[in-house]
Structures are given as structure tokens and as C-alpha cells.
Amino acid sequence: MNEIIDSSDTFTSGTVPIPGQGGDEIAAYLARPLAAEPRGGVVVLHHMPGYDEAHKEITRKFAAHGYLAIMPNLHFRDAPGADPDDAAAANRANGGVPDARLVGDVEAAAAYLRGMPNSNGKVGVIGYCSGGRQAFLAACTVDLDAAVDCYGAFVTAHSPDGFPIAVPPIVGLAPELRCPLLGLFGADDKFPAPGETAELSAVLTELGKEFEFHTYEGAGHAFFSTNRPAYRPEAAVSGWARVFDFFGRHLNTP
């Protein structure tokens, strides 16, 4: 039987409890490399459909690339122990994830990563769909080293009538942006539409914030999602390259 002799690219993963906002214990999915060398951490924020296998795979992808990674279950309080679809439905019925709760959960997840023995103390956040908006929110309210917004809607605009939940804009927080921001968007997306990302870009430019936005032609919402018809391979491959370059510059040990 062959044995693994080099742990530099091996990792372990599984569910752990963490103290979320207000001291509530919530579930989180942790993926961590086994090698002892110090490394940066990434908080992964899942999309509105929930804490699902696709986003656990994304969390493992960061560990395979050498990062400590954790995804808090943002819907855990709405339906503890429920499958992602039922928990997401319960969360929508409750009006979505409150912004204050999200901030507390990200703070807790970042503290968990920084407390790990092979952490270098640097932590970033990445979010998809609703998680993209939440990544921007966290970047303006939590001490982080980098943030990635993947097609997060309702940063500059309010959710429309008939949307499953009421989501207010948070562009007013832009002056408080605490870390470099990477934004990845689709030109065919409606939430956010290109005009909304252009508006946010103009605000951040006027404020002198460090950011870079990239919009992919022929891609719409959820173009990273390999398990959905919206998946666009060229945009996703390019997007992942930009994510790892960005986190490499801001989270790796000098």
C-alpha cells in the first residue's frame, strides 16, 4: 500500500461548531491543509440557496490551494440540522440573513481561522450571489485583509418588488471599506446589472479605495456554479485565476 509522504498538498475537512453572532453556536464547514507552515485564511459565504455541497467544494478548493478555509452556515439558526433547501426556505420566510448577524458570524469565522496554529493572521472573505453583497458588507465592517465579491446584488440598489426578500442597498458603507476588494461580474446579469457595478466602481474610485472589478461578456449570474446551467467555463477559469492571484498578493505570508 502506497503512503502519502508529502503533506504539503493534503488537507482535511468537516463540520465544526463556532460561536456566531451573539454567542450562538452555529455549524461551519472547515477545510484546512495539514502542513504546519503559516498560511492565510478565507471565509467563504454561500449563496442564497444555502450551505450546500457546491459551496463545500469551493471551501475544499481553497484548502487544496493552501489556505485555511471556513464556511459558516448562515441559515443554521433558521432550521438547525435541516437540509440546505429547507434551511434556505426557512431563512427566506424569516426575511433573509440580517446584516448585523452576518457581520457577527463573519467576525467569529475570521477569529476561528486566526486562532488556528498554522494561521499567519491574515484572513480574507469571498461570497457568491447574496454572499457577494455580504462580502462587501463584511469588508466595510470587519477587520479583514482582502475581500472578493462574486456578482453580489443590491449593494447600490434596493431589491425589486416581488423579490423573495427585501434587501436594502449598502453603498453608504463604502467610505468604511477596510481592505482591498476584487469584484467579478457577468455582463448579462440582472442582479447586479452592469450599471450597478459601474455605479459602485465610480463611488469607490471617488473615495480612493483599492479595488479592481472585472465583468465577463457572455456570462450572467452564477457563472462560477458548475452544477447549474448558468456555468460559463471561460469566465469561471479566468475568475478563479484572478481570485488566487488576488488572495496570493494579500493573504500570503511575506
Rank of each mutant, 00 (worst) to 15 (best):
N120I: 09
E37F: 06
Q134I: 03
E25N: 12
L177V: 09
T197H: 08
Q134K: 12
G248D: 13
K56P: 05
K61P: 02
P84I: 12
L74A: 07
M48G: 03
L251T: 05
P194V: 08
E199S: 11
R60H: 06
S201Y: 04
D24N: 09
D105Y: 01
D143A: 13
A35E: 14
G22V: 07
A88I: 13
L102R: 01
E25H: 05
G132D: 14
P33W: 05
K56M: 14
S238T: 10
F136A: 04
V106D: 04
K56V: 11
R178C: 01
P19S: 14
Y67E: 02
S13K: 05
S201R: 12
R249F: 09
A135G: 09
G162Q: 08
A69Y: 00
A166P: 02
P19R: 10
D9V: 09
F154Q: 02
A187Q: 13
F191P: 00
Y67T: 05
R101I: 05
T226L: 13
A135Q: 08
A100C: 04
S225Y: 14
R32V: 03
V16R: 09
F136H: 05
C140K: 00
H65I: 07
G183T: 04
M116C: 08
C150N: 11
P33R: 03
G41L: 04
T205E: 06
G23V: 06
F211K: 02
E196I: 03
F211R: 01
I170H: 08
A54C: 10
E176C: 08
T197V: 15
L68A: 02
G50E: 07
G131W: 03
F163G: 08
